[in-house]
Design a protein around this nucleic acid. Structure first.
Length: 428
RNA sequence: GGAGAGGUGGCAGAGUGGUCGAAUGCGCCGCACUCGAAAUGCGGUUUACCGGCAACGGUAACGUGGGUUCGAAUCCCACCCUCUCCGCCA
């Protein structure tokens, strides 16, 4: 959510930033709306002020037993009350209109974000690991994994397309990945392990900028709750509406949860395999920090995600997203893409974003600043995947496959596998 | 799901129609006393919005939303949440 005051103070900068996102200028319209709103607000407040004043006088007059004076004042207030509801309604309407306009405008890109129209213009900033050379033709996971317990048919039969049923060592490997990620983030990077609700109310979704614009991307229950598209929602909104003490920051939270996405806008994309599911697990990282710390925290968080890939010996590259490919709430985003030898391509496995105060404004999450004239300030929030478990499973399968169709368990996961070192094709 | 109690400032906790943004205590900040500290004393200490260069003035907020009233933390209605007991249940 944008601050109308900063738009008012610097409309050119606002429009210029929107232009970098490929959006038309809006500052003039917003400011006009806001001016009208403020004028109305002042009128309403003046009327209220007069009403309050008269009411106090009525009390005083009645105390003195001056009934006539009290009645005269009552008549004056009654007249005032005839015109007030219309003014108030108009002021509320304008405020709602302004809010409706502001809440669907995406965050402004940070200065160092490259301009670009789409993913082709993202900038690769780092590359780690060397893709393995195979002495056989590596298979795609969708071909290899069914024999190892990744049961697409049963998933589809139970729930439809984009659902998968994992069995045996495949299910265990999936679990091992999740546990491993959680352990790395909690033990090595100082994130607090959380186990949040995956069903949340409108406020949590709104606060993390998933509503109102992206309602169709998530599943919504019949009694008005939402299945979280990512535990970014639960973790970030855990501080919704709070006035935090400065000593509570930085707050670093992680959770391994199911995530649910309708994939409404992805019809036909990645329909095969385990890459794009309606339900998947993700180890999420969320940081709540002071504004001056968010840039550095963004790098730290991205490193925390990279660490998991490096421990698993999975080659990856790091992209700085261009303005045209960034998500709605982000002011700057790094994507990590893992190498998939079966597909012969790098595929997104993590996305780490700094939203600045964009979400904090929506959630109304502030902290107390010691010794400042302005005593409260919005926090900055960041979120990142550390990592998406399902896609990591895909990456392990493709990178660690053997000629006989088996998959070797990465060393880092052995402590979690109860003696299983290789996933072997089932005989049936 | 049923019955009862309750939701007030950073925390605890008064307040049942006007002078209440709200007593008191704790916490926090400043000052005094002290070599220093503790204790004690004095003063200060909610947030958002509107107007104003500012000083400051105004409006709103006592779980949320409506209503009654000249006037609501206080009365009425609905909803949400918490606690206790019962029922059910992983």
């Amino acid at each position: 959510m944008h601050d109308i005051r900063s738009i008012r103070e610097n409309p050119e900068a606002f429009d210029a930033a929107l232009a970098r996102r490929g959006l038309a200028p809006q500052a003039a319209d917003l400011i006009a709306l806001d001016e009208e709103r403020r004028a109305l607000t002042t009128q309403v407040q003046l009327a209220q002020s007069r009403r309050n004043e008269a009411s106090k006088l009525i009390g005083a007059a009645m105390g003195k037993g001056d009934k006539d004076a009290a009645e005269a004042l009552k008549a004056e207030v009654a007249a005032l009350k005839d015109e007030m509801p219309a003014l108030e309604a108009r002021a509320d309407e304008l405020a709602a209109k302004l809010k409706a306009a502001l809440e669907i405008i995406p965050n402004l890109p940070a200065e160092d974000v490259p301009d670009g129209a789409g993913e082709e213009e993202n900038v690769e900033v780092a590359r780690w690991g060397t893709p393995r050379t195979f002495d056989f033709t590596p298979k795609e996971h969708a071909d290899l994994a069914p024999a190892l317990g990744m049961d697409f048919e049963t998933g589809a039969r139970l729930s439809g397309a984009r659902f998968t049923f994992l069995r045996g060592d495949m299910a265990r490997l999936h679990r091992a990945l999740g546990q491993f990620m959680l352990d790395v983030q909690t033990r090595e990077h100082g994130y607090e392990e959380c186990n949040p609700p995956v069903l949340v109310g409108d406020d949590a979704m709104y606060g993390t900028d998933k509503l109102p614009k992206f309602a169709e991307d998530s599943f919504n229950t019949t009694n008005g709750r939402w299945l979280i598209p990512t535990s970014e929602v639960s973790l970030t909104a855990s501080v919704m509406g709070e006035l935090l003490d400065e000593s509570a920051l930085p707050m670093r939270l992680t959770a391994l949860t199911l995530c649910f996405r309708s994939e409404a806008g992805a019809a036909g994309r990645d329909t095969r395999g385990f890459i794009r599911q309606h339900q998947f697990e993700k180890c999420e990282l969320v940081s709540i920090v002071k504004p001056e710390d968010s840039e550095e925290e963004h790098d730290r968080m991205t490193r925390a995600a990279e660490t998991v890939l490096e421990r698993l010996a999975l080659p990856y590259r790091k992209l700085l997203l261009c303005t045209g490919d960034m998500g709605f709430g982000a002011r700057k985003t790094y994507d990590l893409e893992v190498w998939l030898p079966g597909q012969g391509a790098y595929r997104e496995i993590s996305s780490c974003s700094n939203t600045g105060e964009f979400q904090a404004r929506r959630m109304n999450t502030r902290y107390r600043v010691a010794g400042e004239q302005k005593t409260t300030q919005f926090v900055h929030t960041l979120n990142g995947s550390g990592l998406a478990v399902g896609r990591t499973l895909v990456a392990v399968i493709e990178n660690c496959q053997n000629a006989d169709g088996s998959v070797s368990v990465p060393d880092a996961l052995l402590p979690y596998m109860g003696g299983v070192t290789t996933l072997n094709p089932r005989s049936s």
